[in-house]
Design a protein around this nucleic acid. Structure first.
Lengths: 150, 150
DNA sequence: TTGATTGCAAAAGCTTTGCAGGGAA
DNA sequence: TTCCCTGCAAAGCTTTTGCAATCAA
């Protein structure tokens, strides 16, 4: 369980468990695969009457990233988003430029690329693959109703 | 030649060629593969006594992205960087977490992934693959002089 | 001439930081 | 009790925008 692991890791590094840290981590657990940004987290907590200041949300997120609970993502919006880092599940993101939905792509053809680079002496740490395009749903729609050119 | 192409495209869309637009595009041509940010461009021009305002640098970069001359990149620094978009040369980026150098990776194993997704109905537009790790140079160095743990 | 483009400064986001008070261990 | 953590407000950065003056076509 994430909360228990966090408690343990905090103790190991002489940090303290606080209600705020638990609340922030829980938000990510309850909104798994939603790619929340700091402001989203703040607003979710605020709407539940759990007031955690924005500064604390930012600081807690940084801590959770550092501890490996969260993975930081960017989708070209000018903000950072985060997702629970389940290390066993390597996946990538397909961003639909029409509906904005983000699909998680589980294919792992990248293993080949990884092997090739490792043969060249590179050491792998982390991938970040984003694919931009049109998702099947929107592609079907635009076949029926093609967008007009400006 | 990029400048001529830009002139032509601007004319087609009833935009105007200006010294500023030419200067900004030239900076990218002269600093190919350096992944400049807007501020870098501004400072390069400033140091050459070509004063182009920051606002214009930003606006011109946006225009060049829209026209397909530049590709926008993010490396988790909180700023956008750009590179000349040579459409024929699909490549990815390996960011060394030690020296910070960005290597361009030319492998195209991603073709497989692309084909697989296209079979599922996704329409491709653009890739953005970043790989974080340690480059061969730094990996060799740290073998000789391993970093101390904190 | 005409309206797109520039420069300046102000504004707008997102994120970080300083500091004093509060709270976990 | 100790000193880590929080909240608040201010500050920091990058990027965007409003507006009058300028300049390309």
């Amino acid at each position: 369980m994430y909360i228990e692991t966090l408690k343990k890791e905090l103790k190991e590094r002489k940090y303290r468990m606080t209600p705020q840290r638990e609340l922030v981590l829980k938000v990510f657990m309850e909104h798994d695969a939603e790619h929340l940004g700091a402001d989203d987290v703040y607003r979710i907590l605020f709407s539940k009457k759990h007031s955690v200041s924005k500064a604390t949300v930012y600081r807690t997120i940084d801590l959770l990233v550092e501890f490996g609970f969260l993975r930081r993502l960017e989708f070209g919006e000018g903000i950072y988003r985060y997702e629970l880092a389940k290390k066993d599940k390597l996946h990538h993101h397909f961003v639909c430029k029409i509906c904005g939905k983000i699909y998680e792509i589980k294919e792992s053809y990248l293993e080949n690329l990884k092997n090739s680079l490792e043969n060249q002496g590179f050491v792998f740490e982390n991938f970040d693959l984003k694919i931009y395009g049109i998702c099947p749903k929107c592609a079907r729609k635009s076949k029926k109703n093609p967008l007009r050119r400006k």
